[in-house]
Design a protein around this nucleic acid. Structure first.
Lengths: 313, 313
DNA sequence: TTGAAAGCGCTAACAT
DNA sequence: ATGTTAGCGCTTTCAA
């Protein structure tokens, strides 16, 4: 017990004793067994994070920020992949709950009723992120995906574009952005024509190119394209350039994500920035506050989004 | 004990008993505590993976493949970030060892003597990946980074290019690729001029653009550029296009990684493919074999690499 | 096929 | 400031 205290709370142990323990640790190469510690203390210092796909770059900064903010407090992150579908959600959740993480962070709302039930029953703090859902399980850090779509439409309209199109990936949140975009356009007087093309998640440059070709074909008057991902927008820029089109003169192009290449494309990409880093930091803050048994804190955080105006639109 | 068996090895339990246990599990919402299980059985079903940076896309497929192959056997992955430096390596390793993972997979060789010592002392299976180091700690799955660089140089030479340049990121493995590239060129008779530009890790499109501008300035005769990352190569293509240069007529461009956009750039990017997916699968296979107490298997796997010839070079 | 006993390596809680 | 006791929830081992 004294050794345990010397390592975890040295300030309440006699300095000489702490020194003796330190020496013994070095001599023996002792590394504490966190599994045993977690079992005894009911704190695993483990945070489970569920992303749709590890390979989708859009969430990388978020995971990195979350991980970084928690690492300094001794927490580690375990990653789950929900595969953009909600079929295996309950199974994945059970596997993660079995590790007794101190919090579970999900990208997007937990959709399956079964999954929600298990999370609630587990009494583990839950943080849903990247969207403002109406009925969060517990805590929530995000922004309005529909709002993003509406803002994009508004931006095009304000710029005088009357023949907008959208290239949308087929995942939950991209669909919400698309819905916001379309709904804003439905409200126009006089009516505005729109075309949309759906591509499978995850979003790639190639899918963007091909979708743009398709749009050029079926919507010759098109003068603006909103892409639900910067990678797709880059594909549009590539195809446009290859055809000698002028961006934004011929077609305005707008992306989403403000990925790290967006400022360096040709022309630089106008996009909507959702700050994954901030979402990660806020989620970490909520986790730490909850861990400190702080009085019930504000549990819904809207981090908003911003239009990053560059040259492509 | 019977309940434990009914859940883990139902085949040796009376079917009626299994059924009773199943019902009880459903009724109570019981979820096994893997922390306790791991402590008792000395198997955590946890695999620690160390990548230089979560945000570097090049390792995403690898992590995903590794995760996928292990998930079906009940393993989960815990992620560590080594930050492209080896300073904090021992600390990170200690934090991971404390979780008693059943294996530790690292991207790149473990450099610090302290880290190597701890890993060996821990007796946890170790798999170093993405490089063929001469003195692996335990198992190894990778390919020759220097070989990649030499192959790139060879490719340019065979294509008649005599004024090659390289844009290299400043991480361990990129530096090895650069060294291979330069060493092959040093062997040329008659001598071949080379220029190299170093950019900070992680590699970005913007860094590629700017490095290319720099090269154009200080090496007007340049007729080929090898980039240690596809993202950087994309930056070169972008800048070239913006200046109205002809690729590959004016300058041949070659990347590394065969990232998912490489086939859809304009022109399509010639690159060197290192199959992260295969590395991940092989690593998973080694882990599972070792876990099955299989007789000492082949512990060094060279997955090789291949030149993907497209139009940019 | 089922059960009983012991213990994995820690920490909480309660002495001293 | 240090020590003792008990127990976290499982699995291993041995017994019936």
């Amino acid at each position: 017990m004294t050794a345990s205290r010397a390592l975890n709370t040295p300030e309440i142990v006699n300095p000489e004793m702490v020194e003796r323990v330190r020496r013994a640790v070095l001599e023996t190469g002792y590394v504490p067994n966190l599994l045993a510690g977690a079992l005894a203390s009911a704190r695993s210092l483990l945070i489970a994070v569920i992303v749709p796909s590890i390979a989708s770059t859009i969430y990388l900064e978020f995971v990195q920020a979350l991980r970084g903010a928690l690492a300094s407090k001794g927490y580690q992150v375990i990653l789950g992949e929900s595969d953009y579908t909600h079929q295996s959600e309950p199974v994945l959740l059970e596997a993660l709950i079995a590790r007794r993480p101190d919090a579970i962070v999900t990208v997007g709302a937990v959709r399956s009723a079964e999954g929600r039930k298990r999370l609630i029953a587990s009494e583990i703090p839950v943080i849903e992120t990247w969207d403002m859902t109406s009925e969060p399980i517990d805590m929530l850090v995000g922004f309005s995906q529909e709002g993003v779509g509406r803002a994009a439409a508004e931006f095009f309209l304000a710029g005088g574009r009357r023949h907008p199109a959208i290239i949308s990936a087929s995942d939950d949140r991209a669909a919400m952005r698309a819905e916001g975009f379309l709904s804003r356009l439905r409200d126009c007087q006089p009516a505005v024509n729109v075309r949309s093309v759906l591509i499978p998640a995850p979003s790639t440059l190639g899918a963007g190119r091909r979708a743009f070709v398709e749009l050029l074909d079926l919507y010759p008057k098109m003068d603006a394209v909103f892409c639900t991902s910067d990678m797709v927008a880059l594909g549009v820029l590539t195809e446009a350039k290859a055809r000698g089109m002028q961006i934004p003169a011929d077609v305005a192009v707008m992306g989403f994500g403000d990925l790290n290449f967006a400022c360096d494309t040709d022309p630089p990409l106008t996009t909507i920035r959702a700050d994954g880093k901030t979402i990660g930091h806020e989620a970490a803050r909520l986790i730490l506050e909850r861990a400190g048994h702080a009085p019930r804190v504000q549990t819904v955080v809207d981090v908003g989004f911003s239009i990053v105006r560059r040259q492509s639109a």
